[in-house]
Design a protein around this nucleic acid. Structure first.
Lengths: 141, 141
DNA sequence: TCCAGATCAATGCATTTGCATGAATAATTT
DNA sequence: AAATTATTCATGCAAATGCATTGATCTGGA
């Protein structure tokens, strides 16, 4: 296990598990829904975004089709998104964020941001953050 | 979202999700159990390790107590580990790997190692791997 | 000794995920 | 046009996870 590759791999898994754990815990403690909800709401509220198809969200968020389908069920039930028919393609749908959805995302953001700053950014220098981003970017590139 | 911190954060989540996805997929395709099984078996088969308590595994692997309890149920049912009583503490138990457990871990290793090399290490130089490890180490430190 | 509090592990129940498949529409081939 | 194949999304069922609680010890005072 002195192999540098597996040291890095192990630390990647460990860091992610740890960070996701604390961040989710803080969100929950603030009475907010899980990060997965945030991710969807964020994509749908990007400037100029007039709704997205499930199949597009799937690729953006690396979610399995059936998981996204049910996540959208929950978001819709909570009144945060709406599914609309797509003219010209009877299979597809367009998922649109509602006012309540935008509102929730905006309320989640401070808690999310602060948790990431405190548990992630605070451990690293600005220079390190940038190098980290640069290297991690190569993986999914 | 041009904030370097959140660029790094987003890439961390993305890289991990992607890597875990492909690695798990390859393990499954090779007819092998999930990574979580490997992690437990690895800890239990470290040289000089004479079994570990669930509470120790919990901390090593960052698992929730109830999740570990049930993971051990599965491993035990599959004949890969045994739970033994601890002399002197009636609450505790000692989890010990079996011969079948060692065997499985050894069979998982090549598939795991190759997947990590191909999807993770291959994207980065040796120097980058080391820097990555160094930075990620600071997070859980 | 006895009791209050802490630690260790299991479990009932609800939620979420994974897997396989299905249902509907679109695109392509013949 | 008809038939085949591909795409998009949903869903039944099983497995795993999260949450709260329980049961059983152990520990440290009164």
């Amino acid at each position: 296990m002195s192999d540098p590759v597996f040291t890095a791999w192990a630390r990647l898994l460990r860091a992610q598990t740890h960070l996701l754990g604390v961040v989710e815990r803080e969100l929950k403690q603030a009475g907010l829904p899980p990060l997965g909800w945030y991710d969807v709401l964020l994509e749908l509220s990007r400037p100029g975004c007039d709704g997205l198809r499930p199949v597009e969200l799937e690729k953006l968020l690396l979610l399995a089709q059936y998981n996204l389908s049910r996540l959208l069920d929950r978001l819709e039930k909570a009144g945060l998104v709406e599914r609309r028919a797509v003219a010209g393609d009877g299979r597809a749908q367009r998922v649109v964020i509602t006012a309540a959805g935008r509102d929730l995302r905006e309320r989640m953001w401070p808690a999310y941001r602060d948790a990431v700053r405190r548990h992630f950014a605070a451990q690293l220098s600005d220079r390190e953050i940038e190098m980290l981003a640069q290297m991690l970017g190569k993986i999914t590139a």
